[in-house]
Design a protein around this nucleic acid. Structure first.
Lengths: 231, 231
DNA sequence: TCCATTCTGGCATTGAGTGCTATAAAGTCA
DNA sequence: TGACTTTATAGCACTCAATGCCAGAATGGA
């Protein structure tokens, strides 16, 4: 697990890794991660992910191929945007929850909370999630990116039930929760459910009730919505 | 999802795809998928997956690089061996279960049943699973390979609870079940739990009870073993 | 022997990703 | 203004996975 980070971590020093030093020294970056991501997503959306080469992205942005790889470690990583920041938010949500709130409730609320987006972000997010859940190379890469997500959840579960985060219990809970979240995102990205929050919420209710086939109200779309689903 | 199959599916015609025709016509294959897999796994185990090139595998087997790619679509696929055959077994297990047996029980039994291995296979399996759950490139590829597994489970769940296999319910159940299975395998491959069946069994009991943090007996290793865990 | 079939090997090509180096652009300090 | 340091960029060379193409080897059948 050594290439999970987003920011380039190479010999010299990547542009985005500058921790807002006192003053801006040295040559200024000629572009931003966001700008590259926008151009790239546009190309991916129109021509397809595999059909778009890094050279094409670079020249669309107006930088060299080599510079592209200083902003993103790989072509795949572009689709993930600023994923790391959400990881911090997730951890905060989980660790900050009251101790007496049921574990699975905390988990559901945390995932819902970290996935609340403004109307302006939703279009781009749908493109991102659509790519991630359909393009084989990105489906594959998602496993690596989501490993970090799993670690955070496993830590949380281990605190609740005791034992090591590496143990079977926390690992199983974390990976199952990941599955639920991925299913919600994929369904939302595919058909035009305008209620991402509701999908996440329903998925986690199924998870928390052990997928009881007798509680049909949990399985039917448009079932009882949680209060938090009215974003 | 177009490159999920194991057997090479290229222009000419792959060796392993021959459906046992009447007689053996044409030049005979100079090796087998199994032979290649053995040599490759040996190299991966000793030198590491990334440090082993396809050229090295090919020359270890005594074939050309080009021929390697006629037996396996990619270097990653070698680690997966004959994964497709198990997919058929899983589907049979799920579809053949009595209708009145609880859904999650069927699922648990099916996964346990499709993962029963002889003592002779366990060493190689542990190497395989260790690689799959640690090497980033293989962790990534696992998402693509397991997509098929998810489809099978989602079909089964959809039959039980109604609705489309693409719907949120079946997708969530399938991906969560996959998470449970992966956690069990990873834990077994990492520390030397000699009881793969037991790990799978425990993971699915957690899943079926909604990860209830109050039922501590489910979370503790060595808790109440199911009858089927005595392999 | 001729022929169709099947597998193999070599060659060329594409595309991702990395290491190295020279250079451009910016601020700092004298 | 002119070194000097810092930071970012471009270009080149290289490795490696993967794919298409084609010639040729091995095999059985007519």
């Amino acid at each position: 697990m050594a290439d999970v980070d987003t920011g380039g971590t190479e010999g010299v020093g990547p542009p985005a890794a500058r921790p807002s030093a006192d003053v801006a020294r040295g040559r200024r970056p000629s572009t931003t991660r966001e700008h590259i991501a926008r151009q790239a997503l546009d190309l991916f959306d129109h021509r397809g992910f595999e059909a778009t080469t890094v050279d094409e992205i670079a020249s669309a942005v107006g930088i060299s191929r080599r510079t592209f790889f200083r902003y993103y470690d790989s072509k795949r990583d572009v689709v993930w945007g600023e994923f790391d920041a959400e990881m911090v938010r997730l951890r905060d949500q989980l660790m900050g929850a009251p101790r007496d709130e049921p574990m699975m409730d905390v988990l559901r609320r945390a995932v819902v909370a970290t996935n609340r987006f403004g109307a302006g972000e939703l279009d781009e997010l749908r493109i991102r999630m659509g790519l991630i859940s359909t393009v084989p190379a990105l489906v594959a890469h998602s496993a690596v990116r989501y490993a970090e997500w799993c670690d955070v959840v496993a830590d949380f579960v281990a605190r609740r039930v005791g034992g090591s985060p590496e143990g079977l219990g926390p690992q199983t809970a974390a990976r199952a929760a990941l599955g639920a979240a991925m299913a919600a995102f994929a369904c939302w990205a595919r058909h035009d459910s305008d209620d991402l929050t509701g999908e996440v919420d329903r998925a986690f209710r199924l998870l928390a009730t052990g997928f009881d086939e007798n509680r049909l109200e949990l399985w039917v779309a448009g079932g009882p919505q949680s209060s938090s689903s009215r974003a």
